[in-house]
Structure formats: structure tokens, C-alpha cells
Design a protein around this nucleic acid. Structure first.
Lengths: 256, 256
DNA sequence: CCGGCCGTGACACTGCCGTGACACAACGCG
DNA sequence: CGCGTTGTGTCACGGCAGTGTCACGGCCGG
């Protein structure tokens, strides 16, 4: 899963399209040249507003977004497109490297964050990493149906079997997605933490239990006897789109 | 975090093999001990060249690679094995924490990077994370069939020869896996305890008998005359996917 | 200031797993 | 061929680790 330097997924066919939004024309062009050299198809915008419009018009696989820009800063751009349902991965570029900014960037809906001045090679590596990561997301279905429930991952909206409507939070959606991706298979809590929270953060595993509870409450007809969100004691959880015949359990002494 | 089994994952099969390459013998041994305690099978090399040779000879699931080493540094080792097509995940260990080194590590084909001095806990977490990720792809055919039974280690579900469905517990699945891995060979109770329970816990061996009983009840047509889960008196058990004529002693013949 | 999201601690409860007891089969012996 | 010994098959019961569930508090955005 590593050796790929700057190659792309052959299944994809076309070159990944990257939009560079930065008001420093000199820098933007420099980045662009290097991306092109790596085989990406690129486009450039020189302020936030222009970037926003381009994102609306075109379809990109990744947006590099400078934070400090005239007219409209990067955070605002990101928030705006997220509000419009655009899921394109966003990487922020900023002069400040403190955690404060980083958190704000991620909260605005960004996927990564790189402090200027950065090493060009690091930028390229991160770009490759993000595209790689987003692939699993992009390749998967954008909607999920099971047991009369319908979840739309584009809008984070869900309509439950009983007709109730639910707005999913980001974490809820991610967890659902991870489970659905491995439908039928057991997914450990650590797997989920990795996928949803990432390497650095390790919340208590109880947190995951809580999310499962909420999912069950919404999407299971009888939350106490789940048909889709199964617990595998001591291991993790298992999601099945189709209700499963609960295994015969009376094999112990009971008989006779 | 919970007790974290630290034993092996039946979905994976064998314990993950980790190679530690570091010229500081003291540190390498320390890491090794901790990895062993977590349930990994480990090996140690004390310089780059030795590490490279071991990687060529053996198959590892992960290599911890010190960057600064005599004879051949970690980056060179990583580049070398990547050039030879070895895909084994590599995690670099280095004293320097600057971006420069980190980039070079990633470019050399590394999967992760940890700066010394590191907190042991973080090392273990990252190791676990990397191995977990590589399992995503390496999902081996984790199903076992014998005598009309079908066991799916991915879901912990089993369909017995008579059509009944059974949900396996974690321990049940692990024991089954251990037996199946050594199909045809005798597995002592101590072997099973080591593999399934780990090196610290030692339940009574009767516990194992109990699990065997349950397995037989579910998967043997006639639990009293097992065709697959054989008892080897005074030693342990032996599993055979293909029904095997019990090696009855000749004189026993028709009697009984 | 309020309201949503999310992380954590507290508590109850479920069911897995470990153990001991008993019966019986396997083996050695005379 | 019967006896004693050892090891295994089998069962029932209880502890407790692991989950279900709730409620509270921090944090951020509106």
C-alpha cells in the first residue's frame, strides 16, 4: 500500500484534478507546476471567491486552499462548499502552524493542513495520501439502504423505517460508512477508531458504544434485539444490511 | 482502552511477525520484549545490513527500522527492499523529528514514522494500527469447511452440516482456528493455551475440554464418535477436515 | 446566550468463560 | 478378566469482564 510514489489508481483512468487556490500568484503557479509534473491535472484560482465559483462549476478531486486571502478566506470557502454538500477533500495552507488554526481548519470541513513554509515534497506526499484515502470514500456507494432505512451519505440525511427523518452528524455517518463498507464482517473498535478518528486521537472505546446505541435506536425496529448492528462480544461490531437468522442459541444444556 | 486481548486474531491466523532493526542493542531488546508481551512474534537485527538480509530471507508483517545505523542506514534498507518488490509495512524510528527526515522516510517507502524518544504506548498503538490496516487488504480466505460444516472467521458465523446456524464466540473461533491451522497434527492443550489465552493467563486445561465438547456438539454428526475433533489421550487434540477412520486398535474390532 | 455534538463516568445487566463434581472410557497390571 | 488409576466427556453454576444505557459537562458555532 505504500510504494506508489505518485502513481494513480489505474481503475480511475483519468488524472486526478486538483484546484490550487492562493492569492500569491507566484506560489500558486509554483505548486501548480509541480503538481502537473507529478501527473495531476490542475487549475488555479487567485482568491477565495474565484475558487468558490470554480469548485461550484467543476468537479475536483482535491482543493488546496490558502487560508489568508482577500475577499473570502479559505475557511469561509470551505464552510460554504460543505454547506452546499460538496464533499471534495480540502487541504489548507497557512502561515501559522499552531494547533488553534489547525483545529479550526478541520472543523470547517478540511481534510488536512499544511503550514507554510512547507517542503514541496511533503506537499506532494500529502496530496497523494489524501487522494488515496478519499478513494475508499468515493468508490463506495453514496447511499445505503437496509431494513427500510435509507441513508444518504451526500447530504447526511436519513429516513428511518418508521418514516422519521434524521440528520446524521459527521461521526455518525463515518461510523455507519465503515460498518457498511465491511458489511457482514466483524469490525473491531480499534478499526473504527482508526478509520473515523485517525491515528493520533484515541477516545475511550465507550464512545463507540454510544454511537452504536444511537444508530440502533434510530434504525432498528427493536433496538434490544438488533437485526443489523450486531455485537460481537469481546471483539467489536458487525453490520448486516439484510436481517440475519439469529443463530440457534439453545445448544447448551437446556435441552432434555 | 480495554484489556486488549493481545492474543492473536483468528481472522488473521498466525501471530504477526515483527522485525526490529536497531543498532542500540539495549533499546532493540526493550522494544522486542514489549512486543512479545503484546503477543507478537519478534526478531531483531542490529544493523542495516543484517536487517536487510533477514527481510530477504524471512516474511515479516512489519519492520521497525532505525534510521541512523552503521553499515547501512534505515532509509537505504527501505529503499532496497522496495526496489525488490517487498511490500512489508515499514515504520521508521529516528532521533530527529524534523520534517526533512520524515519526508525522506515516507519517500523511501515507509508507512509511518516515530521520533525518538517515543512513548512506548504510542509505539504499540501505532504498530497495532499499521497491522490492522494491512489486514484490510490481506483478508485471507478466512473460511473453513469440513464435513458439511462451514465456518466463517470473518463473521464468526457457522452453518453446521444439519443446517443449523451458530454464532461463534471469540474463544471458540480462536480455538477452531488454531486446530485448523495444524490440521492433521496433534495440538497439545498447552499449545492452545499459549495461542489463544496468551502467555500470562493459565486457566485449567478442563476449560479447553469444554470448548471441544461444544465444537463437537455442533459440528460432529455423532459427537460421541468424532470424525474431525479427535482426542489424543494424554496429549491433546487433533483436527482433521476429512473424516478419518479412528485408528481403533485391531483387537477391539467389533466389540464394544 | 442557547443548542448541538461528542467524550466520559456511573450503573445495571448480560452472557462468556472458568471451575469443580461426577460418570465413564482408556490403559496398565497382575 | 477384574481392578485401580488416570485422563476425558459432560454438566451446572457463579464471577466478572464487557456492553447497554443514561446523564452530565466541555466546547464551539450560531
Amino acid at each position: 500500500m505504500t510504494s506508489e510514489t505518485s502513481t494513480f489508481d489505474p481503475r480511475r483512468g483519468t488524472r486526478p484534478r486538483v484546484l490550487v487556490v492562493d492569492d500569491e500568484a507566484h506560489l500558486a503557479d509554483g505548486i501548480r507546476e509541480n503538481l502537473e509534473a507529478e501527473g495531476y491535472a490542475t487549475d488555479v484560482a487567485h482568491d477565495g471567491l474565484e475558487g468558490l465559483e470554480k469548485i461550484r462549476r467543476e468537479r475536483y478531486d482535491l482543493v488546496l486552499l490558502d487560508v489568508m486571502m482577500p475577499k473570502m478566506n479559505g475557511l469561509e470557502v470551505c464552510e460554504a462548499i460543505r454547506k452546499e454538500g460538496v464533499q471534495t477533500p480540502v487541504m489548507f495552507l497557512t502561515v501559522k502552524g499552531d494547533a488553534e488554526d489547525r483545529i479550526r481548519g478541520l472543523e470547517a470541513g478540511g481534510d488536512d493542513y499544511l503550514a507554510k513554509p512547507f517542503h514541496l515534497r511533503e506537499l506532494l506526499l500529502r496530496v497523494a495520501a489524501i487522494l488515496r484515502r478519499s478513494r475508499w470514500y468515493a468508490e463506495s456507494e453514496s447511499a445505503l439502504e437496509f431494513g427500510g432505512n435509507r441513508i444518504d451519505f451526500e447530504t447526511y440525511h436519513a429516513r428511518a423505517w418508521d418514516g422519521t427523518e434524521h440528520a446524521l452528524t459527521h461521526k455518525e455517518a463515518m461510523i455507519l460508512k465503515v460498518l457498511a463498507e465491511h458489511a457482514g464482517a466483524i469490525v473491531t473498535r480499534e478499526d473504527i477508531l482508526d478509520r473515523v478518528w485517525g491515528y493520533e486521537v484515541f477516545p475511550s472505546t465507550r464512545t463507540i458504544d454510544n454511537f452504536i446505541v444511537r444508530l440502533r435506536k434510530r434504525f432498528e425496529k427493536n433496538p434490544e434485539a438488533p437485526l443489523h448492528f450486531h455485537t460481537v462480544r469481546g471483539v467489536g461490531y458487525r453490520f448486516t444490511p439484510e436481517p440475519e437468522a439469529q443463530p440457534d442459541r439453545a445448544d447448551d444444556g437446556a435441552a432434555r
